[in-house]
């Protein structure tokens, strides 16, 4: 049996009075691509932020590589973060540094490798991202797709065991989106990475996912293979897949209580 590298148990999170995650439970197995899918406001970005340790939950635990990230010691977290790479939605490059200097940052901070070795690693990763000869460019000179690929180059510069990718294909033209999906599959296969992708792009989900977790209103409403999701009898998932507007409505009593702010649950 494959051992999970991430285990999320009974995770609850709220912003103010709003419950954003409600009893989320999931596992990510070593070597798989797990896609967390959901519409706007479904809680998927909140879940990602909790997995990255950027947010503290109301209750619940997240174990990554046998470390409980919410009560780990600083040294444990530092060691864990060296095994994790994060590609943020817009690339999140530092605007004052060129592409190469952005990509090399994690190596400068976390290793004592020779400068020439780091230079070669940076050029190698840019080559993999199909961005050869762009190291001298500033982030402001890059297209949306290039920003994402540069962000991905930085995320994988340390060859992490675990890669988180927020909305890899959002806002990209279809060809560039497909290229990024291919890249994600190649990284998993060649570098043995475990990859968690957060997205609402269906084409991407169906192409890359080994397993899909669907969030709706902060709850996990499905957890299975792409075929499981496609064949789900759940109307909310059916509507999402068929790009139908959400017609699910709470019943009258729940609505009434909400109007009177009576019941926060």
């Amino acid at each position: 049996m494959v051992k999970p590298i991430i285990t999320v148990e009974h995770l609850f999170a709220q912003y103010g009075d709003t419950q954003v995650l409600k009893d989320v439970n999931l596992e990510v197995n070593t070597g798989e691509i797990l896609v967390v899918m959901g519409g706007s406001g479904s809680g998927k970005s909140t879940l990602l932020n909790h997995m990255l340790g950027l947010k503290t939950p109301t209750s619940g635990t997240i174990m990554i590589d046998d470390v409980n990230i919410f009560n780990a010691k600083n040294k444990q977290l530092r060691n864990l973060r060296k095994k994790m790479g994060v590609a943020f939605q817009g690339g999140a490059l530092l605007s004052s540094l060129n592409v190469a200097d952005n990509v090399r940052l994690p190596l400068e901070h976390n290793t004592s490798l020779d400068t020439q070795t780091i230079d070669i690693m940076v050029r190698m990763k840019l080559e993999v991202m199909n961005m050869a000869d762009t190291g001298h460019l500033m982030p402001s000179e890059l297209s949306g797709g290039m920003l994402k690929r540069a962000g991905l180059a930085r995320a994988v510069i340390m060859d992490p065991k675990l890669l988180f990718f927020d909305e890899p294909s959002a806002g990209l033209d279809p060809t560039t989106a497909v290229e990024l999906d291919e890249l994600i599959l190649t990284l998993r296969d060649a570098m043995n990475m475990t990859i968690v992708v957060v997205t609402h792009e269906l084409e991407s989900v169906f192409k890359i996912a080994d397993r899909v977790v669907v969030l709706f209103g902060g709850e996990v409403v499905a957890n299975g293979t792409v075929d499981d999701i496609k064949n789900s009898p759940d109307e909310r998932i059916h509507n999402m897949i068929n790009r139908q507007p959400n017609t699910h409505r709470d019943d009258g009593e729940v609505y009434f209580n909400r109007l009177l702010n009576k019941d926060k649950d």
Partner: peptide, 10 residues
């Protein structure tokens, strides 16, 4: 890993 490959390039 990449550091190994870069070292071999050197």
């Amino acid at each position: 890993d990449s550091s190994g490959m870069a070292s071999l390039v050197e």
